Measured scan of single mutants.
Amino acid sequence: MATGGRRGAAAAPLLVAVAALLLGAAGHLYPGEVCPGMDIRNNLTRLHELENCSVIEGHLQILLMFKTRPEDFRDLSFPKLIMITDYLLLFRVYGLESLKDLFPNLTVIRGSRLFFNYALVIFEMVHLKELGLYNLMNITRGSVRIEKNNELCYLATIDWSRILDSVEDNYIVLNKDDNEECGDICPGTAKGKTNCPATVINGQFVERCWTHSHCQKVCPTICKSHGCTAEGLCCHSECLGNCSQPDDPTKCVACRNFYLDGRCVETCPPPYYHFQDWRCVNFSFCQDLHHKCKNSRRQGCHQYVIHNNKCIPECPSGYTMNSSNLLCTPCLGPCPKVCHLLEGEKTIDSVTSAQELRGCTVINGSLIINIRGGNNLAAELEANLGLIEEISGYLKIRRSYALVSLSFFRKLRLIRGETLEIGNYSFYALDNQNLRQLWDWSKHNLTITQGKLFFHYNPKLCLSEIHKMEEVSGTKGRQERNDIALKTNGDQASCENELLKFSYIRTSFDKI
């Protein structure tokens, strides 16, 4: 039985969820670079991206490699990797027998973001014989899940209580170790020597080791999670996991709180800001991140802002960003909400898709409305799209047979046209069989910064309504002859009103 693990408890099935942008060198404390989270699957090609990484700022997932063999891993080693800020997950990587050479110096898994409450997941690794993470000293947050690894031993010899604050939620089941077939031998045991430290858990006094050649490092209890030197002297209180010299914040392997210019500090002093819960960055760093993602459509890219001495992905609820200094300031009234469309555009074809934009005031991208039916549609669209004030790209209304009016965009005031449909149009209306009105132009103002209007096959939309939009939106004169079809717009509506004058002759039985 794995020490510190839980057996036999019912657990939810383990679901495996399925960018080499360097964020800056980590400095003297770390020998390499800070790398983003990685999802490495199918083959070993991307694994080489770990070569210079000291910190993975995010998670590391290595999974679904069915053609790899043990010899493929023999020359692979990433000794610079010290810390993973989120979680480490391995799933069905064939041929991998140990992690001792792959990650010989991995010391800390912070667990800032977890995989279903777990910071370390080893699942269905069919050839893994031992973990071998002999320098792993601290899992700051989260638990361990090690399950269905039929060859995995050296679990009962690990004292997880020396690595985690609590072992109650560890789930370590259905491994070879369960069948008591392992016969784990710690260093020196074969020669009758006791080389590794022994600890007591559940009444068992057991030597602690990761492999037959690597003991588990056990520091004096007084050192807590700070770690200790090879001689057993406690590291500085700002260290986490390990250090090369005692009581020196510049000799830590990793930091308990924050890293700044080669030393570990309790908090980031001005003019620095907390970033990702582990390091200090200056304003320029946060500003660069903001600008890199301002026009990016890459998933996970955030326009970072500053709030409460932190550089964070977005302002919290009730705050909006001051564009001059990136500071989050309290909103006066309802907060603006910028919604970034991942692929640059979004099609609204149902109430469900409209709900995804609920509360958005600025759309960074283009909207395509293609709704053919739905219950209580006008009210639903207004509830979900009615706060949109600005669209950076274009607005396209296409084959939306259920629409009679666009009044559900009740606050839309600006279409920038930074991206144009077919390279020309910022407003595009095609084949809307029941569209009769755009907006009530006596109450609604709309500016279209650039781009043209396109109207074709809107049989109940009168040309007068379209011409009014040209005047109000500032697009009059931009359109070419064929942009607004004269014969297919309003051709099934009563669009022309003329005053009919009647004269009559009164007659009676005795007068003409």
Rank of each mutant, 00 (worst) to 15 (best):
Y171T: 12
T157W: 02
E314K: 09
P187T: 10
N295S: 10
F275L: 04
F285P: 01
C239I: 00
P313V: 04
K292L: 10
K224A: 10
L64V: 10
C243T: 00
Y259A: 11
T320S: 04
H236G: 05
P36L: 09
Y134G: 13
L102T: 02
L88E: 00
L60C: 02
T229P: 06
P79V: 04
P336F: 04
T250M: 07
Q245I: 09
V200S: 13
F258Y: 15
C331E: 02
L90K: 00
N309L: 05
A190H: 12
F66A: 08
Y134V: 14
P246V: 11
D72A: 13
V34H: 03
F103K: 00
I82A: 06
I139V: 08
T267P: 02
C234H: 01
M137R: 11
T107P: 00
T157L: 09
K100P: 02
D169S: 05
K191C: 02
L50S: 01
C280T: 01
K251C: 09
K176W: 14
P36D: 01
S237D: 14
V93F: 05
L60G: 00
C311L: 04
F283H: 04
E51I: 15
C286L: 03
I40L: 04
R256H: 06
D178G: 15
E314T: 14
G142I: 02
E168V: 12
L260C: 01
L332M: 13
P249H: 10
L327S: 05
N242V: 10
G318R: 04
S296Q: 14
N242P: 10
V93T: 06
N150G: 12
Y319C: 10
I56C: 03
E314S: 05
R110I: 10
G32W: 06
L102F: 13
V93R: 00
K224C: 05
I122V: 07
G192C: 14
R256Q: 13
N43T: 08
L81T: 03
P249G: 04
T199M: 04
G203Q: 09
C243Q: 01
C235Q: 00
P313S: 11
L63Y: 08
N52V: 14
S161K: 09
P336K: 09
S54D: 01
L136G: 00
R46E: 10
D169P: 12
F275R: 02
D247H: 15
D72T: 10
G32K: 05
D75F: 06
I84G: 00
H212L: 14
I56R: 13
E231G: 15
L60S: 00
A119D: 00
C234F: 01
D288Q: 15
C53R: 00
E231W: 04
C182I: 06
E180Q: 14
P336W: 11
F283R: 10
N149H: 01
T320W: 09
E57G: 03
C239S: 00
H290T: 14
K176R: 04
K148P: 01
P220Q: 11
N242R: 12
M321L: 03
N175A: 12
G262Q: 06
E207R: 09
D288I: 05
G37C: 03
P36E: 14
P79R: 07
N117K: 11
L332E: 15
N308P: 02
K224M: 05
N150I: 12
L29A: 12
P36W: 05
I122G: 02
D247A: 10
I306V: 12
E181A: 11
L90G: 00
K67C: 07
R92A: 09
I56G: 00
K67N: 07
K80T: 05
G188R: 07
T157G: 07
N175D: 13
N308A: 06
D248F: 02
W210R: 08
P31V: 06
C209R: 07
G318F: 08
E57N: 10
G142H: 01
R256Y: 10
P36T: 10
E207W: 14
E57I: 08
T107M: 06
K176S: 07
S284V: 04
N117F: 10
L99Y: 01
L81V: 05
L63T: 09
L289I: 15
K129L: 04
H48G: 02
G111C: 01
M125P: 00
Q61K: 14
F78S: 02
H291T: 01
L88T: 00
T140P: 07
D72C: 14
L89R: 02
I201C: 13
N195Y: 06
T329P: 02
N42R: 05
T320E: 08
N149G: 04
K292W: 08
L114M: 05
E57D: 15
R46M: 15
C255S: 00
C234I: 03
L76H: 13
G241K: 06
